[in-house]
Computed example of a mutant assay.
Amino acid sequence: MGPASGWAGRSVTVRASRSGDAVTIRARVDEEMWRLVRVAPLRPEAVVSAGPFCCAPSRAGLVVLFTSWRTTDADISLHP
């Protein structure tokens, strides 16, 4: 939803969560507050799977290293 220039060269944690008719993507570095990255529509009946992927639509040369991938139970602080 906005630039995160201060994140360059740092480890970023990305969280995707599905609720109702949308998937919400949030990200943060270290223990900072979660930032909203994207809210995308998703039909509630859609059967989906997910995995890591990253791209840079505005410039060449982006290098991304994925260090882990986990699927967890819903975070009740995000989806009460």
Rank of each mutant, 00 (worst) to 15 (best):
T72G: 09
A22Q: 07
R15M: 02
G20A: 14
D21L: 11
D73W: 00
R10T: 03
R43K: 13
D73S: 02
S68W: 14
P41C: 08
P3M: 13
A27T: 01
W34Q: 05
R38D: 14
P44I: 10
A4F: 12
T71Y: 00
V47H: 07
G2D: 12
L62H: 01
L78K: 12
H79W: 12
P41H: 09
F53T: 01
T24M: 10
A46Q: 04
P57H: 02
P44K: 04
G20M: 15
C54Y: 04
G9C: 03
D73L: 00
D73A: 08
A50E: 05
A60R: 06
C55D: 03
L36H: 06
L78N: 14
V14P: 03
A4N: 06
A60Y: 10
P41E: 13
S11D: 11
V64H: 03
D73V: 01
S49K: 05
P44C: 12
A16K: 02
F66T: 02
V23H: 08
S49N: 09
D30N: 04
P44W: 05
T71L: 01
V63I: 15
V23Y: 02
R28N: 06
P3F: 14
L62R: 01
V47P: 00
S11M: 12
A60K: 06
R10I: 03
V14Q: 07
T71S: 06
V63F: 07
C54D: 04
C54F: 08
T71M: 01
M1G: 03
V39H: 00
A8M: 10
P80G: 07
P52I: 10
W7K: 02
V63N: 03
T72E: 15
W34G: 06
L62M: 10
V29A: 06
S58P: 00
V37C: 00
A4K: 04
C54T: 06
G20L: 13
E31I: 09
T13I: 08
E31L: 14
S77V: 04
T67A: 05
V48C: 14
S11Y: 10
W7L: 10
R18Y: 11
A22S: 14
T24N: 10
L78V: 11
F53Y: 01
C55L: 12
P44M: 10
L65P: 04
P57Y: 05
W34S: 09
S77M: 14
W69N: 01
R35K: 11
T72Y: 06
H79V: 08
G51S: 07
G51K: 02
G6S: 13
D73G: 05
V14N: 02
D21I: 09
G9D: 03
P41D: 11
G61W: 04
R10P: 02
C55M: 12
S11K: 12
R26T: 14
A46P: 03
A27P: 04
A74R: 05
S58Y: 08
G20Q: 13
T24S: 13
T13R: 05
S19I: 09
T67W: 05
V47G: 10
G9T: 01
G20S: 12
D21G: 09
S19G: 14
V14L: 15
F66W: 07
R28W: 07
